[in-house]
Design a protein around this nucleic acid. Structure first.
Length: 438
RNA sequence: GCCCCCAUCGUCUAGAGGCCUAGGACGCCAGGUUCUCAUCCUGGUAACACCGGUUCGAAUCCGGUUGGGGGUGCCA
């Protein structure tokens, strides 16, 4: 039988990374097996399930490239089907009606636990069993006629022909109930695989206060989907060899449920950032240019009418100094802003030194006389100047860097000069001389 | 309380009885390259929770302890 997995989120408006990781494992497993990956929207809680919330889920899946087969199934449309299953259970004597707890609210449908031990082989945890005396009957249809989670979940999985249920660890208790329901129905249960939780530094469930907890936040910070995908895939699973930076295809090829770890793991933002840098290198310049541009525009740091070639040159020049699309503005904003700020410490160290202004003036003179204004020509001009003055290159490089960029760190000076161009460099040095020259 | 699950460097992990004086990655530290930072290269730091048992031999198997998590709804 061909594999069918599903991702069954309740649309609550946010997609937590734990759920996202569950979606990734379902997707990875079904793609690896050449099976299907389905989407079910568990919107039975009508109050919280808005169209916007559903869209948020869809957007997250699309961003990560988690394509699902067929149409999404909305649980709210399956009411009749749920009732059929409840009827069937009643018919088989596996359920009964009762005012459980004597609430006076009328009769609910209660599932009867089989009176024997229930167990199953979890694909990641191995065999799990529970004694009959620890299994209690439970409500599957409320006295108001609405189905309870367990009923809907099992009925829908049957309807959808799900062969492997890959879900969070918090569902293992439910699984005893679900397995019992399958057995009562005379249907072979699917394979269950329970994924350990993603926890914070305190070992508690990863939440908002532990850093970015929802997909949208990673997206907003400029993380690459393939980097988040890769990191999450490796959180609880590994290919068994030493590979870490992997493409979607490599992950699909290597993924096995049996290699999923059964202990909880902690998200490491530092490693995610590194991973992002690795995937950035793997993307082409053009793609990165587009990504950086989008982030810059969103941050309002890219003036309208910026020459595309200039922008591209800046990105190429920044090279691997930036690990996140969202960080370009902070690190290279001066390229696009003539009103760039001067870093106070750098000014003190490089421009307020005795003779610094004189050096800048000499550099300006040397650069302005150049026929061609390139990295090579500016470098040889300054080397010649250094020779004449008898000092080191550092004495020339540092003040000039601060003068044209306002900061002490950045790309190679000569590369930077070429990208900025003669006009900007001249104007910036002059402005610096006026401002700090006394 | 009861039930279920989990336990290797700070973090992510490899390890399915000898290949382990425990390997890789991130981070961190040191050195190299260099005009700064980043990259890159080299080296280093750091772990089998504890106690028993099985075995010629245990990170690996078994039991217990401790610690952590999950569940215990006419929530999902």
């Amino acid at each position: 039988m061909s594999v069918r997995t599903r991702f069954a989120p309740s649309p609550t408006g946010n997609v937590h990374i734990g759920n996202l990781r569950t979606a990734i494992y379902n997707w990875l497993f079904s793609r690896h097996e050449g099976g299907e990956f389905l989407l079910r929207i568990e919107d039975s809680d009508r109050a919280r399930s808005t169209p916007e919330a559903v869209q948020t889920v869809m957007d997250a899946l699309e961003w990560l490239g988690l394509d699902y087969d067929g149409e999404a199934l909305y649980q709210s449309t399956q009411l009749e089907r749920h009732m059929e299953v409840a009827e069937e259970l009643l018919r088989r004597g596996a359920a009964y009606k009762e005012d459980k707890g004597g609430t006076g609210r009328g009769e609910a449908v209660v599932f009867r636990m089989p009176g024997k031990d229930v167990g199953f082989v979890d694909a990641v945890k191995g065999r799990i069993e529970k004694k009959a005396e620890n299994l209690k009957d439970f409500v599957i249809v409320r006295s108001d006629g609405s189905p309870v989670f367990h009923l809907g979940n099992v009925a829908d999985d049957i309807t959808m022909g799900i062969t492997h249920v890959i879900r969070g660890d918090d569902h293992v208790e439910n699984t005893f109930k679900h397995v019992a329901m399958y057995e009562a129905l005379g249907i072979a249960p699917p394979v269950f695989a329970h994924l350990p939780m993603i926890v914070n530094a305190q070992g508690r469930p990863y939440s908002k206060r532990d850093g970015a907890a929802y997909v949208g936040e990673f997206q907003a910070q400029g993380f690459l989907p393939e980097a988040l995908f890769n990191s999450l895939a490796l959180l609880g699973w590994s290919p068994g060899d030493d590979r870490e930076v992997m493409s979607r295809e490599e992950l699909v090829a290597a993924f096995e449920l049996g290699r999923v770890r059964s202990s909880p793991s902690q998200m490491d933002m530092t490693k995610l950032l590194w991973m992002n840098g690795e995937h950035l290198k793997r993307r082409g310049l053009e793609e990165n240019v587009a990504g950086f541009r989008q982030a810059m525009e969103r941050a309002g740091r890219l003036p309208a009418g910026t020459d595309p070639e200039y922008f591209k040159a800046v990105v190429a020049c920044m090279g691997e100094r930036v690990k996140l699309y969202g960080d370009l503005g902070e690190q290279a904003g001066f390229f696009f802003d003539e009103g760039y700020a001067y870093d106070e410490k750098s000014v003190q160290k490089r421009l307020m030194k005795p003779g610094a202004m004189e050096v800048l003036r000499e550099e300006l003179a040397a650069l302005e006389g150049l026929e061609v204004f390139s990295a090579e020509s500016t470098e040889s001009a300054l080397r010649a100047l250094a020779e004449r003055r008898g000092g080191g290159m550092g004495e020339l490089v540092h003040p000039l860097r601060v003068a044209v960029s306002g900061r002490a760190v950045g790309p190679g000076l000569f590369e930077m000069l070429e990208v900025l161009g003669r006009g900007r460099v001249g104007a910036r040095v002059r402005r610096t001389l006026e401002r700090f020259g006394g």
